[in-house]
């Protein structure tokens, strides 16, 4: 305890008046919820890299099929089973058009006198794999995205009504959910595909038929949590209508959790589509999706591994990217993680 008594200038002890509003001043700039989330997620390198990968894949899914002159569904038997060939890369010993014929490695393009280049090669029917890959990615993404949106819409409406109105309505709605949630996704998806012809829409419907349940439970939980909080009660006291309370007060608060969940629903849908195609319940040729491409590639794995390689890489990248972005968003938006 140093009692320092060194001489201080006399005027040091002049009384000053502190504007107490000054003490209340908040020195940090105030950030909106989403700005704050963005600042957080920006520090998550994995999520940022994933976003770039995702943007690239989505871009290619729409532009890729038009980058080459080959149509993804054109069958050209003369050009069947060609290995990848990209002009300019030949010197590096990759994408040089060489492939196995029996046990010898030969340049199949020269052998078959093919003048054009197939960047990622062709399949057993001579369809261009580059355009097929991106067309397939496009369809897989479309299925996953639409299925996820349907899940969100039904889930939010169902969960919202159940949670907001509560009481009898909630009771009945939750009993239904409890029965439905017992049905395994795998089982319901297979049964639904059996009724409908395999196709884009039947897969979407099959995926959505029980997919919304998870979302509805989350939304209900959140609505239950928020609806009795003071700011909602205050809005009610001020005479806000139910619609206004739901749209202006509840939805913004549960938006984050909806977005996070959507980030996990999409890869699940991508997986299920590919899975169905792999077991033969997916899209029918000549339509392509990542699943059918992988299924095709698997049949020729031993001699033409490249057919499988590209779609397998794209589907893995997509799944990883969505999962990492989902993780990143969860960490960024979860208020528990603040400080």
């Amino acid at each position: 305890m140093t009692t320092n008594m060194k001489k201080l200038p006399k005027d040091s002890f002049e009384r000053i008046t502190i504007d107490s509003s000054h003490a209340e001043k908040i020195s940090k700039p105030s950030l909106s919820f989403w700005q704050d989330a963005w600042l957080r997620i920006r520090k998550n390198k994995a999520a940022i890299v994933s976003m770039f990968i995702l943007v690239f894949i989505v871009f290619m899914a729409f532009v890729g099929p038009y980058m080459v002159e080959h149509d993804p569904e054109d069958v050209k038997v003369a050009h069947a089973s060609l290995p990848p060939k990209i002009p300019g890369l030949e010197k590096l010993g990759i994408f040089d058009g060489e492939g196995k014929l029996g046990s010898k490695t030969v340049n199949l393009y020269e052998l078959k006198k093919v003048e054009v280049n197939y960047w990622f090669g062709t399949d057993s029917l001579g369809r261009d794999l580059f355009s097929r890959l991106w067309k397939g990615t496009q369809i897989s993404l479309l299925i996953a995205f639409v299925a996820a949106v349907i899940d969100v819409v039904i889930g939010v409406i169902y969960g919202g009504i159940s949670g907001y109105y509560g009481g009898r309505v909630d009771d009945i709605m939750q009993r239904i959910v409890e029965v439905l949630i017992g049905i395994p996704t795998l089982v319901i998806v297979i049964l639904m595909i059996m009724i409908m012809k395999p196709g884009i829409w039947s897969i979407i419907i099959a995926l959505s038929i029980t997919g919304w349940i998870g979302m509805s439970r989350i939304v209900r939980g959140q609505v239950l949590k928020y609806k009795n909080q003071e700011f909602v009660l205050a809005a009610k006291t001020l005479g806000a209508s139910d619609t206004r309370i739901i749209v202006k007060h509840l939805l913004p608060n549960i938006m984050a959790i909806i977005v996070i969940n959507m980030m996990f629903t999409i890869p699940t849908a991508i997986f299920f589509e590919a899975f169905l195609s792999f077991i033969g319940m997916g899209l029918q040729a000549p339509k392509a999706s990542l699943g059918t491409l992988i299924n095709d590639g698997y049949k020729f794995l031993e001699y033409q591994p490249h057919i499988l390689f590209f779609p397998a890489v794209i589907i893995s990248l997509l799944m990883i990217a969505f999962n990492l972005i989902g993780d990143g968003l969860r960490d960024a938006l979860d208020p528990k993680m603040k400080d």
């Binding site: 305890m1 140093t2 009692t3 320092n4 201080l8 005027d11 040091s12 002890f13 002049e14 009384r15 000053i16 008046t17 502190i18 107490s20 000054h22 003490a23």
Partner: peptide, 21 residues
Amino acid sequence: FALRSEYAMKIDMEQVPPLFK
């Protein structure tokens, strides 16, 4: 504490007070 105190003096804004006995 000076910012919240009605007894603040000029020196409070400059130096941390030591413990006086």
